[in-house]
Every structure is written in C-alpha cells, then in structure tokens.
Design a protein around this nucleic acid. Structure first.
Lengths: 215, 215
DNA sequence: TAGATTGTTAATCGATTAACAATC
DNA sequence: TAGATTGTTAATCGATTAACAATC
C-alpha cells in the first residue's frame, strides 16, 4: 500500500490548497522553495514530500502544479465520490451541509438528520431534514460509510454506536467528545476549541519572550 | 517563560476535554494509564506531559482532575477573558458566534461583522451585525486582539491586512487561505477540509492493509 | 506487605535539516 | 556556461517509549 509519514500526511491539505489557488490564476510550475516559503517549512522537506508522493519535478522549473494537485487527489481518494450524512442540523451542521466547496473534494452530503421535531421536514441546503431515529436505516439503505457528527455532546456517543453498528466506517467528529469505536472505524476529531487554546496561549504570552510554537 | 513541546501542546485540548467530562460526573483522580487509554497514547507520555506542566500526581491514585484542569487553563490563559470579533456572518460564523461553550474557555464574542447589506443590522447570537467597513475602527475602539475569520476566500487576505494594521495579534482562520501576516501576529488555520481528506484516504484504503495513520 | 502508580533516565524511533551531487 | 533547481544521503533534532527505581 502506498504510504507516507504522518507528518507529511498532515501537510497534504495545505499543499493542495496552495496548488489549487495557483492553478486558478494560470500558473503551471512551482518550485520547492516557493512552496516552502508559503508554508513556512524547510525547502528540503517539500522535496522529500514530493519524493514520498512519487512526484518528480523538472530541473530549473519545479513541479507541475496540476500534476501535483492531481497526485494528491489520487493519493487521498478525492476523485471518487464519498457520500456522507450530516448528523445534527444546528448552525454548524447547516454550515457543513451547505458548504459548496466540498464537491471539489468528492464529498457529497446526501442527507441531514436532527432530533428536533420542529426541524424535521424543513430544508437545509437542498435536503429535507430527517429524524435521527432513522439514522441506522438510512445508513444501511444508502450504504453510507461516513457520518459528519455535529450533535450536542450528550448524544454523541450513542449516535456513534448506532452509526457504527449500521456499518459506518469513518466519523468526522465535530463534538467535543472522545468517541469509542471498534478497530476498523476511523474517527477524525475536529476539536475546534483546540485552535482557540493555541491562540489564547499565544496572546497571553505576547510581549513576553520572542517567538512561539508553530501551530 | 513556561514552555512545553509542540506535540504536548497539541494534546492539551484533549486532556482538558476529558478532565472536564470526568469532573462533571464527580471523579476526583485519574491515572496516567486511564488518560493514555482514552487518548490512545503511551502511558509514559502522559506522565511526561504532566511533568512538563509541573503537575505532580499521587502514588496509587493518579492526578487530581480539578488541579490538572486548572493547571491547563492557567497555562493556556483560559481564565482571562479574550474578546474576539467574528468576521463573516454566514452559517459558520453564526455557529461560532452562538456557540455557548466558548465562555468556559474565556472566549467572549463581542461582535459580528458582515458585508451583506441584508445581514447588517440583523441579530446573530445577541449581536447586531455590523458592516465589515467598520472592522478597523471597532478593533481599535475595543482594543481587540483576536478575530475569527469566516469570510469567503477572496476577501480573506484584504480583511486580514486591515485587521492586522488595526492592531489584531491573532487570527483564527476558518478560510482555506494561507494568510500572510507580519512577525508577531499568530495565525491558526482551521483547514476543515483537511479532516475530510484524512478520512477519504482511510476509506479508500479500507480492506487493503491493516492499520492506518493515527489522526 | 504487595500492588499500584508516579517520575525519571536512557534508548529508540521518526521527522527535519544540512550538505552536496546531478542535471537542465 | 552559470545559475537554478531537483533528488538523495547522512547528520541532527525532537518526540516517544522502555526500563526501572521510588513511594504510598
């Protein structure tokens, strides 16, 4: 199986975003140096990442932007459609269910669920909101592998269990809970508050010593 | 200045979340082993993190949950209020502006800005939406150090510049842009799509080889 | 006491960087 | 050609883990 280091893996979204932006303005090549400056990482590291991805550059020119972008998309499986349910139709769930950019990454929202009777039946981003009671049956019927979890913390664990039992293999977790899942199921935690904590620490220490932790 | 490793720093939000949950149900002590199992990291690593935080445990009992939580909050400056503006009143901005949990971390949203004339003057989470044209003056008047950026990508860079010139020192960036800021200003990128990319890669490779990348 | 658990040191592992040869 | 740039190896740095003594 093709594989790169964890650390390199985390850089791929950032590479991808930069490449897309450059491609949009018509640039064809980018050097490791330029990428390294934008990302504020070492130039050699960029070249090593490219080597890990089995991408080869051109002397004097750098790397083909479109080839590199496509390679990252291939590596991450972004060219195949991934269907997902948004579980939780609050503001965050609505933001995720209606975000137009996801389609560029092969992410297709195919349903929105909520427990609030007032919300059920209303529309969010082209989807009629459905009761969470139907979570398992929808997962099974549509053979869903991914759910996007934006529910209140007190129901996060039980809904996770329902979803996993119904066959979900990946959970994009926007709740502040550490979910328990069996081996074979992958959870990605977006503990959004973590981002604030890093900034809070920075702000508290500004004026103090010189430079700070990267991210 | 007190300092811990980057990697340890990234674990703090997760520790904090677990501690809060345990505290809420009345538990007083937690062992390094228990923490390590929840986080799926090595037990020694937990003890090393505690040592870095200058927290001492009790033999046979573990670490005081409340003391540890407080120490993390102190370390991160979460006990002092941080005032922030939400710039961009779309679904995501609204989600962030109305999220009730932030107050536990000292994060206080003091205003919401948008460019849409239809939105200006309406209310989002107790705040009357204000024109982004007033960004600089509000930052200066209220002495704001942090902005939460949830605007469309094409205005992200210019608004960043305005905010930085007006005195902002930290940017919580929810746009998919790599922002350029002078030294002394800290950007935290929440490239949400990155989370999906990790899951997409996992789903594409399930059934293939055994275990996968951690997060 | 025996068992559980912390705290610390040394060893290992993984990621980054420096150095430099290759090449267009 | 000279300059720019890639690609790779070896050295360094930082993070994690294993081993184990200390102690309640």
């Amino acid at each position: 199986m093709e594989s790169i280091s964890k650390a390199a893996f985390r850089r791929l979204p950032r590479y991808h975003q930069i490449l897309s932006a450059y491609e949009a303005v018509g640039r064809e090549y980018i050097s490791s140096r330029e990428l390294s400056e934008i990302l504020e990482i070492n130039e050699t590291l960029v070249r090593k990442d490219m080597a890990d991805l089995k991408i080869r550059g051109k002397q004097n020119q750098g790397y083909s932007i479109s080839a590199l972008r496509l390679r990252i998309e291939e590596f991450l499986g972004l060219q195949e459609i991934t269907e997902a349910l948004v579980v939780g139709g609050g503001h965050l769930g609505t933001a995720l269910a209606t975000y137009p950019g996801f389609e560029h990454y092969g992410l297709k929202i195919v349903g929105v669920l909520d427990s609030d009777p007032e919300k059920i039946g209303t529309r969010i981003g082209g989807h009629q909101v459905v009761s969470v009671a139907r979570l398992a049956s929808i997962i099974q019927k549509k053979n869903i592998k991914l759910i996007i979890l934006t529910v209140p913390r007190d129901v996060a664990k039980e809904l996770t269990e329902v979803a996993v039992n119904a066959g979900v293999l990946a959970i994009w977790n926007f709740t502040p809970c550490e979910l328990n899942v069996p081996a074979g199921v992958k959870v990605r935690n977006e503990q959004i508050i973590g981002g604030f904590m890093a900034l809070s620490h920075y702000l508290k220490n500004v004026g103090g010593a010189a430079e700070e932790n990267g991210d």
